[in-house]
Simulated scan of single mutants.
Amino acid sequence: MIRHLVLLKLNEGVDRGEPRVQASARAFAELGAVIPELEFWECAWNISDRPIAYDFAINSAVADTDALTRYVEHPAHQAAAAQWREFATWVIADYPF
């Protein structure tokens, strides 16, 4: 199994209450039911207000590197990520467990 973690940070001046931001969060929330490669899926807004905190987190798991590639290339994932690209940056970590 591979854990796929993503932390998203809204760009300066972007508020999580904006409609486009809320739509993007919903798009990610729906991926767990849409992409068959996902063995585990959760995402949510961070509740921490510390200066170093990211704003939104995704915690997921796939069976192997091939499944990870299929997930990343899936059209629903690509569409959801494209929405975030307009107003956020992110970091990822993929590791076996």
Rank of each mutant, 00 (worst) to 15 (best):
residue 10 L to R: 03
residue 27 A to E: 09
residue 53 A to F: 01
residue 73 E to S: 08
residue 82 A to D: 10
residue 49 D to M: 10
residue 49 D to W: 02
residue 27 A to N: 12
residue 2 I to F: 13
residue 65 T to S: 08
residue 13 G to P: 02
residue 44 A to P: 00
residue 39 E to Q: 14
residue 43 C to I: 07
residue 45 W to F: 15
residue 47 I to A: 15
residue 12 E to G: 04
residue 74 H to N: 05
residue 11 N to I: 06
residue 4 H to Q: 08
residue 58 I to V: 15
residue 95 Y to G: 05
residue 95 Y to S: 11
residue 28 F to Y: 11
residue 81 A to S: 10
residue 39 E to Y: 03
residue 49 D to F: 08
residue 81 A to P: 00
residue 84 W to I: 02
residue 86 E to Y: 03
residue 93 A to C: 14
residue 69 T to R: 03
residue 71 Y to K: 08
residue 88 A to W: 07
residue 66 D to T: 07
residue 25 A to P: 00
residue 14 V to H: 09
residue 87 F to C: 01
residue 67 A to S: 11
residue 18 E to G: 01
residue 11 N to A: 12
residue 17 G to P: 01
residue 63 A to V: 08
residue 40 F to Y: 14
residue 94 D to V: 07
residue 51 P to L: 14
residue 33 A to T: 09
residue 90 W to I: 01
residue 64 D to T: 03
residue 63 A to L: 08
residue 45 W to G: 14
residue 61 A to Y: 05
residue 40 F to P: 00
residue 59 N to T: 13
residue 25 A to L: 02
residue 22 Q to I: 09
residue 61 A to G: 09
residue 40 F to N: 07
residue 63 A to Q: 12
residue 43 C to K: 07
residue 33 A to G: 12
residue 51 P to T: 11
residue 6 V to E: 09
residue 62 V to E: 00
residue 55 D to A: 00
residue 75 P to I: 10
residue 94 D to F: 06
residue 30 E to C: 10
residue 36 P to D: 10
residue 44 A to H: 14
residue 50 R to D: 12
residue 32 G to P: 03
residue 94 D to G: 09
residue 75 P to N: 09
residue 53 A to T: 10
residue 24 S to F: 13
residue 40 F to I: 10
residue 57 A to M: 08
residue 21 V to I: 15
residue 89 T to N: 06
residue 88 A to Y: 09
residue 8 L to E: 01
residue 78 Q to C: 07
residue 22 Q to H: 06
residue 96 P to I: 03
residue 83 Q to E: 12
residue 47 I to N: 08
residue 6 V to D: 06
residue 42 E to F: 10
residue 32 G to L: 04
residue 48 S to R: 11
residue 41 W to S: 11
residue 34 V to L: 15
residue 47 I to H: 13
residue 52 I to Q: 08
residue 69 T to S: 00
residue 64 D to F: 00
residue 55 D to W: 01
residue 8 L to Y: 11
residue 90 W to G: 10
residue 36 P to M: 00
residue 15 D to M: 03
residue 73 E to L: 09
residue 95 Y to P: 04
residue 3 R to K: 15
residue 80 A to K: 00
residue 29 A to V: 01
residue 56 F to L: 09
residue 18 E to N: 00
residue 40 F to A: 12
residue 35 I to E: 04
residue 47 I to V: 15
residue 95 Y to D: 05
residue 9 K to Y: 05
residue 14 V to Y: 06
residue 67 A to M: 05
residue 43 C to G: 06
residue 66 D to A: 14
residue 29 A to K: 12
residue 84 W to T: 01
residue 61 A to I: 10
residue 15 D to T: 05
residue 80 A to C: 06
residue 17 G to A: 07
residue 74 H to K: 04
residue 21 V to S: 03
residue 51 P to K: 12
residue 92 I to Q: 10
residue 72 V to D: 09
residue 17 G to V: 07
residue 29 A to T: 07
residue 3 R to D: 08
residue 95 Y to W: 08
residue 2 I to G: 00
residue 4 H to V: 06
residue 56 F to Q: 02
residue 94 D to M: 05
residue 21 V to K: 01
